[in-house]
Simulated assay, not measured.
Amino acid sequence: MSERTRVALIFGGQSSEHGISCLTAASVLKAIDKDRYDVHGVGITRTGRWTQVPLNVIEGYRIVDGEAPEVAEPEQDAVWMVGEDGCEVATRSGEQLVDIHGIDVAFALLHGPFGEDGTLQGMFEMMGIRYVGSGVTASAVGMDKHFMKVAFEAAGLPVWPYVTASAHRLKHHRRAVVDEVNRLEYPLFVKPARGGSSIGIVRITEPAQLDAAIDEAQRFDPKLVFEQGFVGARELEVAVLGDPDHPDGCRASVLGEIRVSAEDGFYDYEAKYFDEDGAALDAPAQVDDELAAQISELAKRAFHAVDAEGLVRADFFVTDEGAWINEVNTMPGFTEISMYPTLWQESGMTYPELVGRLIDLAMARPVGLR
């Protein structure tokens, strides 16, 4: 029996961020300490099928000709089971189960709905398997920009003006929604409420563009959030890491800053992942000590506002009027060059150390209610 912790890397998924999740799995697999962990790859295809993926396949995931990798549709499906010795993953071959592996902890590297939003975390909870990151409630709140902002406001965090609209309101009371949105100041950002990586977000500068922006954003989520845009603001980010032994319950990294080269200042999907010149990431950000302390404190408050565990990236806009929280991400971009690991590297923690720390946090907390 191996004394190494058995880790399942879970990636892919049915969201629009499927490819980014695959790239993240390749980065984590490269960094994870093979002397401490037995690693098993479990992919979810775009159609929702589960499959055990060989490690050499994961290692080969990369962007080719501008296309992100995908989990291939399997000939045989993977299944999860709860046995006498805990959780196991296996492959179904006809009426038999083969390639059976015990799992101590799941490291879900999924972004977006059906992975980052509490659905997968609920499965882990029911199966009694430890997992990296936030629980069901925090994951759901952190995925839904509407309820996230409600949680921020309840915690007294500074939130910029916004409007939310359900699919029902947009269908049956669209005129009222449009009137409410037009009370905000342009430019506006029209966003899928439960999306990520800026996919489906539309920036508009006048009311005449609103209907088309709603239609585009609803291709990705029937529920939308309309945010009043910032003009000339700095975009700062903080990586927050859970630390049960710290008086604050978590620690904040140095600050990072995103400087977007596009004239409209929109840090979109292409700029994030495919355009090498789309944005510059300054880590650490050039800020004075007072602002750094303020943003760090707000980031830790945001971590607790959504009841997060493990990891969170908190994003802020800073103007001459002050600092405003934009959102938190409970499973932020996690490739080696993503902002979250980069900020911890700048704070003195290497990428492999960060991976190990997150697994240790998951293993240390109890299963069930906590």
Rank of each mutant, 00 (worst) to 15 (best):
R130N: 07
G128E: 06
M123E: 15
G122T: 09
D144R: 03
V136T: 08
V141L: 07
D117K: 03
E125P: 03
G115W: 00
I103M: 08
G133W: 00
L109A: 11
M123T: 15
P113M: 08
G122A: 13
L110V: 14
T119I: 03
M123L: 11
F124L: 12
R130M: 11
G102C: 15
G118Y: 05
G128A: 09
L120E: 03
I103A: 00
H111L: 08
F114Y: 12
F107C: 02
F124G: 03
G128M: 09
F107R: 08
M126V: 03
L110M: 14
G112T: 12
D104Q: 13
A108Y: 02
M126W: 10
A138Q: 00
G115D: 11
V141Q: 00
D144V: 11
M127V: 09
H146Y: 05
M123I: 09
L109P: 07
M148H: 05
F107M: 13
G112M: 01
A106T: 14
M126G: 02
T137C: 15
H111Y: 06
M123V: 11
D144M: 09
G122W: 05
V141A: 11
E125T: 14
G102N: 15
G112D: 07
G115I: 05
M123R: 02
D104I: 09
I103R: 00
T137V: 12
A108W: 00
I103E: 07
M123G: 14
E116Q: 07
L110R: 03
G135V: 10
T119H: 04
G118D: 08
T137F: 14
M148Q: 07
M148T: 08
E116H: 08
L110F: 04
A108D: 01
M126K: 13
R130D: 05
V132F: 04
L109W: 11
T119Q: 02
R130V: 05
G115S: 10
D104S: 11
D104T: 04
D144W: 06
G118F: 12
A140H: 12
G133K: 01
M126A: 13
V105K: 00
S139F: 02
E125A: 13
F107A: 02
D144E: 12
M126C: 09
Q121V: 10
E116G: 07
G122F: 09
H111P: 05
T137M: 15
R130Q: 12
V136N: 07
A108V: 11
D144C: 09
D144K: 10
G102E: 10
